[in-house]
Every structure is written in C-alpha cells, then in structure tokens.
Design a protein around this nucleic acid. Structure first.
Lengths: 239, 239
DNA sequence: CGTTGACTTGAACAAGATCAACCATTGTGG
DNA sequence: CCACAATGGTTGATCTTGTTCAAGTCAACG
C-alpha cells in the first residue's frame, strides 16, 4: 500500500449524489464502503494508469480533473475524454485485463481505488449496485456514441460549442457556475478531443468571442449567450 | 409475442464460441438458455429498435448484418457501428431505460432476444455470466475509443484501410475468407461510419484498386495485398 | 427496356491544416 | 528581484484534403 493511501468511506462522501452510491439507501451505503480499498493522490501531469498496464480496479474521482487518451503506433494522440469529480475511470481495462488507454491528471487529484473483484462480488449481492455498474458502462457507451457523431458529422464551431456546453453542464451539476469556468486543459488537448488542430481551436474561441457569445482569456471562459451556443451546436433543420 | 418468435437454446447454438456462452461449461450453458426469451426475424431495411424506444432487452445476432446509428436534430446520421453474427446490440439502452441509437438490418437477420432483467438475475447467480456481460460492455467502450482515434486523427485512406482490415478480420473469425467478401452496406453508410462523404469513399476504393492493394467491383471486395493495407492503416513513425 | 438506386469520376471550391511569426504568462536561477 | 527561458496561446498567409456539385455509368428489376 502506498504511503498516500488511506482507508475511506462512501457513506459520508460528499459526492454521494454523483458517484457510485447513486440510489443507495443507508444500509446499502455501509456495505458499499467495502468496494473502496484505498484512496490515491495523483499530482498534475502524473498518470493514474497507462495503456498496457494490468487492470485491477476502477477509479472514482474525488477531486481533480483527468484526461484519457489512446495513441496510434506512430505517436498521434487522441484524447477520448475529460473526467471530473464523481466520474469513473478504468472501464476500458475489463475486457482484456489490461488497460487500453491512458489516464492523466490535468490538476492535482485524488481518486477512490475500487478493486474490480470487490465490485463484482458485491454487485452479485446488491442488485442496486449491479444495476449501477451496468448504467455507468452504458453511459460511457452512449457518451462515446455522441462523440462519434461530433467527430464524424460536425464542423469546428459545432464541435467547440458542444464541448463548452457539455463542460459547463457537468460543472454546474457539481455546484459550479452555469456561465463561467476555468479550462483545465490546453488548446491542443481540446483539439485532440474534438478532432481539430490547436490553431483551429484558438481561432474558433476568438470567433465566438468576437460574436459576443463567450468571453475568453486564456483558460478562463465565460458564456455570455448560452442560447447562441446551443443554436450553433444544435442548428434547426432548414425547412 | 410476435408470430415469428420461437423458443430456442444457446446450448446447441453454433455461435457458442463467439456469442454470450463464451467460457461456459455445459452445466452453465443449460441455465444460460434461460436468458434468451425468443428469437426474432428482421427483414432487410427493418429496424430492430429505434432511438427513444423503451429498453427491455439485449439482442444477440444469430444471422444477418446490422448497422447502428445516431442522428442530429437536423437529420444528419452517424453510423456508430456494423454488427455481425455473435455480436450484441442494445447496450446503449441500459443507462436511461430507453435506446439512444437505431439498429437497422442491412440484410435479412435473426436475433436472440435477451430480456435484460433475465441477464441481471442470472448474472448474480453465475459469476462467469456476470464477467462476460462486463467484458462485452468494456469491449464496446474500447471499440468506440478506437473509432474516436480513427475519426479524430486519421486521413481518408487510413480510415478505409482500418475499416477493411477490421471487417475481414471479424469475418474470418466467423469462418469466412481472409481475403474476399461482399460489403453489406452502401458507400454512404461506410462514409457515415468513417466520417467521410460517399464520393471520397468511392475515390479511395478506386485508389486502392489502382495501386493493386484491393480488387473492387461494386460491393465485392478482394484484398490482394493485406500488408500494404496494414501499412496504410498503421504507418511506421518517421524516425 | 426503361426506371431506379447505387456507384464512379471530374472540376471547382472551402474548411481546416500547416507553416511561421509573434505575444502572454509563469517559473527559475543568477 | 529581474532576466530570460519555456510553455501555451494568438493570428496571418498559404496550401491541402476532402467536400460539393454535376454528369455520367452500371446493375438490378418490374
């Protein structure tokens, strides 16, 4: 056990409403504590796991912000997602007992380590946990479907609008502002996620800014006209 | 129950090696039969399920070929996958109890209908089934990760090469030829999956053909130089 | 045998990539 | 504390890839 690992409990975690315990009553919550073995701190820039490593656990983010990515053999990186508090990482490792993507902390972070064997054992006992695990995996499949739609069908402006709206919506669900936030990732990482180059990301930010839809200063973003953003992302069919 | 629904068994299905029963011993196999409620035939062009419909079951393909797709509000379609015998559809529906994509038969097909409540009940009893369900979902997440890489980072030729190699590899696992096959989908559907226009798909086919890498005649494809395809898909880093 | 849907091919065009220069912010060592 | 390097971000000019539009081919089928 690493020195920064400590024993912890879901039952008094303030992420109850977003994380694994969703839909558990108090009695179940006590048992759920068994799935979390330890916590682990990851410094900004450090990896939680890398492609190729043996899979043992899922990870629930307590604090901090991550990106996950896959790479081609010739070194091109595709960011596959950005994860924040209450979200689960590591699902990619189940199928082959090895991770197939990298998880890197974009700010100092702490995760709950949940050995997958604990999850499997306990979810045989608790249908509510079983159902929750299934939903988490299904949610990830649905999310990736929508990223495929974004990458396959949308233009640069639509992609960035969709990205900003998704981000602010998730932040808002965690008690942050509906309109302003600080990006945790670089233009290059945004571009990698959205299938565009960092220059195009920067230009699109500038364009939105000129149009008065957002205010940008480096990593700080304020959404001035959410409806306009929504309209860019989700244009009406031309009748 | 629809008239074309009949009672069936996994234990004597010839897809045992590819479908749900992977890794089950004979005793377990008998119980596994309980998860399949019925079979259902779907004619070419018919939908198995549509986005928005209530989710009740997963579907294992016995025969035939499907595409799954999602759409934007203004009617742009993104094909999210092509599925063949032994593959499982419907995982998208678990998270919200409603499907979020469409599944359409590209040729006359038959599926095993597996009510998800049966799967959940039985997988609490059989760790091997529980594990298998988790792996199926994880495999889908990993597949979608690699499609994101393809859509976000690859050029047209790389995309089509990757697509053809993936298709032939899956067909080969089902006993078909390593080198020739008949496409079940149109150029437009391939293009939608790969994030390119049907004209670009057609041109890229022609280019591969001129280079002697493949032979194409309409939907018939023969791979003449698999190594060349592999190299297009997976170029070496320039040192 | 004509109609239809799928496919191919060419020419013009545009979105985004690439290349390049420059600016802003942060952190570090003298 | 300041100089300056390093990293990240912006902006302009040019180029490329793939899109769009258009015309024509092919195969299947009623």
């Amino acid at each position: 056990m690493t020195p920064d690992a400590i024993k912890v409990a879901c039952s008094n975690c303030n992420l109850r409403e977003l994380c694994m315990p969703v839909g558990f009553d108090l009695a179940d919550l006590a048992r759920l504590d068994e799935v979390v073995a330890t916590r682990r701190k990851i410094k900004q820039g450090q990896t939680l796991f890398n492609s190729g490593e043996v899979f043992t656990s899922l990870y629930a983010i307590r604090t901090g912000f991550f990106k996950t990515s896959v790479s081609t053999e010739d070194g091109r990186e595709q960011v596959t997602g950005f994860q924040m508090a209450g979200e689960i990482m590591g699902l990619d490792g189940i199928v082959n007992d090895h991770h197939s993507c990298n998880a890197i902390a974009l700010e100092d972070a702490e995760v709950c380590v949940m050995p997958f064997s604990n999850i499997e054992d306990l979810s045989r006992e608790f249908p509510v946990l079983q159902r929750h695990v299934h939903k988490i995996m299904s949610r990830e499949i649905v999310r990736e479907n929508s990223v495929m739609l974004l990458l396959g069908n949308m233009r640069a402006e639509e992609r960035l609008a969709a990205f900003l709206l998704n981000l602010v919506q998730r932040l808002h669900a965690r008690g942050f502002s509906k309109s302003e936030f600080v990006l945790r990732m670089t233009r290059e990482e945004i571009g990698s996620y959205l299938g565009m180059k960092l220059e195009t990301v920067s230009r699109t930010f500038s364009k939105f800014s000129e149009e008065g839809v957002i205010e940008v200063k480096q990593r700080y973003v304020r959404i001035l006209d959410p409806d306009a953003l929504q309209k860019i992302f989700n244009p009406q069919p031309c009748i």
